[in-house]
Design a protein around this nucleic acid. Sequence first.
DNA 1: CAGCAGGGGGCGC
DNA 2: CGCCCCCTGCTGA
Length: 200
Amino acid sequence: MICDLSAGAHLFFPPVPGEKSFLCDLCGFAGGTRHALTKHRRQHTGEKPFKCQLCSFASTTQSHLTRHRRVHTGEKPYHCPWCHYRSNCAENIRKHILHTGKHEGVKMYNCPKCEYGTNAPMDFRNHLKELHPDLENPDLAYLHAGIVSKSFECRLKGQGATFVKAEATFAAEEGLAGPGSPGRSGGAGRAAVHHHPGLR
DNA sequence: CAGCAGGGGGCGC
DNA sequence: CGCCCCCTGCTGA
Ligand SMILES: [Zn+2]
Ligand SMILES: [Zn+2]
Ligand SMILES: [Zn+2]
Ligand SMILES: [Zn+2]
């Protein structure tokens, strides 16, 4: 729908690095790499090679199948660092920390140039674009909150903070008490904890 | 809110 | 290319 590339010109990709030159001729999807386009093409072909043995679920990637299988096994390898909430997939932990108000003191997206902190990725991206136009890579900076928390250990990427199971004192409290660790705030990875994260 | 699935992207082999 | 991570939408209690 973008342009009429069906004439055959799309067969020859111009050597433009940095541009999303891999276009899907069916829906106009622009992928940055050929691998992304290959995975995207699977959606149009309906190719779902990974099937669940216990139900009729089928997925295009094994990662999603592995995630789905936990709903049958009941395995909950992910857990919230600040409460006893556990889940079978990391996305629930993400929602639990980011979108809910249960741990209001926790801000997963913290601006490296000011004291702004939020839990909404879009708000953080808008903050970088509007209030810090000098930053030229807000599209990349707003990504990667680093929520993935495995069963025993929960690491917050980009931050030195490491959360261990049944750990009473969090390393992130250092970010509150002693913010003298500017560190490499190259993104949104570091979490800031204000007030009491677990007590509300 | 919690649970679950869909889809894009990055990285290392 | 396989694997993992990240963000989002939908649904039901
Ligand atoms: Zn397409
Ligand atoms: Zn199943
Ligand atoms: Zn929690
Ligand atoms: Zn800022």
